[in-house]
Structures are given as C-alpha cells and as structure tokens.
C-alpha cells in the first residue's frame, strides 16, 4: 500500500506520485469522479492500475492518500 501524493498538473491532469518509487505518472482514468463519490480504480499513463478507497466527496488536491496496487490480469 504505497502512499501516493496527488497533485494537479498545469494542464489539469492529475499526477500520481509515489515518493519511494520515484513514480510520477498521469492518471488517465478514475472509476468514480463525481461530487458525491470519488475514488475506486485508477489507470495510470503507463497502464498500471491502483485502487483508492471510495470517498463521499472529492478530496482537496494536493493530498497524500493510500493506494492499493491492483494486480494485472
């Protein structure tokens, strides 16, 4: 369960940053992204998948959250 730092890039895309791994990737898609539900599975620019706990409201960005790695098919 890596700690993930989320921040917005200038073009509005979310950046997914894992300090320990030097992984900085854009988030290409996120399962739930509406005012009353946020989180779920995210797909990164390099194709890897992670899972965030589903929240009731979108978190304030930037923020550090715990993510779970979703193993590939």
């Amino acid at each position: 369960m890596p700690s993930v730092m989320l921040r917005k890039r200038e073009d509005g895309k979310l950046l997914f940053y894992v300090p320990k791994k030097d992984l900085e990737e854009t988030i290409e898609s996120i399962e739930f992204d509406s005012p009353d539900k946020w989180g779920g599975e995210v797909v990164l620019g390099d194709g890897s998948r992670y899972f965030f706990e589903v929240l009731d409201t979108p978190p304030p960005i930037p923020i550090t959250l715990q993510a779970k790695r979703v193993s590939g098919e």
């Binding site: 730092m5 921040r7 940053y17 300090p19 930037p62 923020i63 550090t64």
Partner: peptide
C-alpha cells in the same frame, strides 16, 4: 520533496 510537501500542507 519539500516543494511537494509545502504544496500539500500549505497549498
């Protein structure tokens, strides 16, 4: 690292 921290903590 510190810049990212300040972005998160102090926006």
């Amino acid at each position: 690292y510190i810049a990212r921290h300040m972005e998160e903590k102090y926006s």
